[in-house]
């Protein structure tokens, strides 16, 4: 061990703590967002399925969040025969 290391601060824990706090605040919001899309997707699918036969793989729900507003895009494909 170098003699200089004796004088260097070894407290890296506060850095770890701060990095985690910033990261997890962001990640918790991200996962909350994904869950909202999942819920919306399931409920929209349930409503549409009451009237037409829908293949769940042909449903796209996209949520774009911006600073002042968000947009929800729903794209559902169904064959004519199913209507």
């Amino acid at each position: 061990m170098s003699i200089f290391r004796l004088f260097k601060s070894s407290s890296s824990a506060p850095v770890a703590r701060e990095r985690l706090q910033i990261l997890l605040e962001y990640e918790r919001r991200q996962h909350g967002k994904q869950d909202l899309v999942t819920v919306l997707r399931e409920e929209i699918l349930a409503v549409v399925s009451r009237h037409v036969t829908v293949d769940p793989d042909r449903v796209q729900v996209k949520l774009d969040r911006h600073d002042r507003m968000s947009t929800l895009a729903v794209d559902i494909e169904f064959p004519h025969a199913a209507a």
Partner: peptide, 11 residues
């Protein structure tokens, strides 16, 4: 942890 090299229980 006391020396600040490891996250503490409180952290």
């Amino acid at each position: 942890a006391t020396r600040g090299e490891m996250l503490s229980i409180d952290d």
